[in-house]
């Protein structure tokens, strides 16, 4: 029992070392228990050296900090050591679909994902959503969270490839997240190109007519600010940060 409590409170990086301790203590306990009356198992079906896979669970709360940008369904992914986008690199097609149309299904289906979850629907301005994700996969030490600002051409917010292996039980970590531009669609703000309620236009278009590099977003212009062809108004303008994200390890 003591060893179990100790195990819960250590980080994953030290888990390997403590495994040896557990095995040693388990063997000692077994030796002691074998001498007593309370020993409930026969020698045949008791296999102390096989540990059940360790499960790790996290609770993730995301808050929409913008005035007028609903966030597309939130994708949460646990994976190995990698970044799912980088400033100065081309966006994957899965990210392009998410950033242009708010559709996270391809992104969630990527083969490198070890655990995934998604919010049931979009998260309106001023609202929060809490999602839980669990894994027994020992390599699932990195977190990616991503969502589109839907009243834009291809703006998204999130974080990717963040090492969460050092989180101890009940430890909480928070971020204020900035807005990226996937660089896959021109920010023309034109009628028919914005998937959010401001327009109801087309989301994903395979044609890449922008610089094809991920970067930080420069904000929307809107028709109120002189882009006469824009379908957006001053109400769709935003500044960083757009999202507050909190992760808590719950198991």
């Amino acid at each position: 029992m003591l060893t179990f409590n100790a195990q819960k409170n250590i980080s994953r990086k030290t888990a390997k070392n403590s495994l040896y301790q557990i095995v040693i203590v388990s063997l000692l306990t077994l030796g002691l228990a074998a001498c007593g009356d309370s020993y409930k198992y026969s020698d045949d079906n008791y296999t102390p050296l096989v540990q059940p896979p360790m499960e790790y669970s996290y609770s993730i709360t995301l808050t929409n900090l913008t005035y007028g940008q609903p966030l597309s369904p939130i994708a949460v992914i646990l994976h190995g050591d990698s970044k799912m986008w980088q400033v100065g690199q081309s966006a994957s097609v899965a990210l392009e679909k998410l950033a242009e149309g708010g559709d996270n299904s391809d992104f969630l289906a990527l083969e490198s994902n070890l655990a995934t979850t998604s919010s049931a629907g979009p998260v309106p301005p001023g609202a929060s959503v809490t999602l839980n994700i669990s894994t027994t996969e020992p390599m699932a030490n990195y977190l990616t969270v991503v969502t589109m600002l839907v009243n834009t051409n291809d703006a998204f917010s999130g974080l990717t490839g963040v090492d969460i292996s050092t989180l101890v039980l009940n430890q909480e970590k928070s971020w204020r997240l900035n807005v990226y531009d996937s660089g896959t669609e021109q920010n023309n703000e034109a009628v028919g190109t914005i998937p959010g309620p401001a327009d109801g236009g087309v989301g994903f278009d395979a044609d890449r007519n922008d610089i094809d590099l991920v970067g930080y977003h420069s904000g929307v212009v809107s028709k109120d600010d002189g882009l006469s062809s824009s379908v957006l108004t001053q109400a769709h303008r935003f500044d960083n940060p757009a999202v507050k994200l909190t992760i808590t390890r719950t198991k």
Partner: peptide, 18 residues
């Protein structure tokens, strides 16, 4: 007047002035 609406009545990040 830029707008007479405030559709988000929660404390939020200011979208900036026009």
């Amino acid at each position: 007047g830029v707008t007479d609406m405030e559709s988000n009545d929660k404390v939020h990040i200011h979208r900036g002035s026009l």
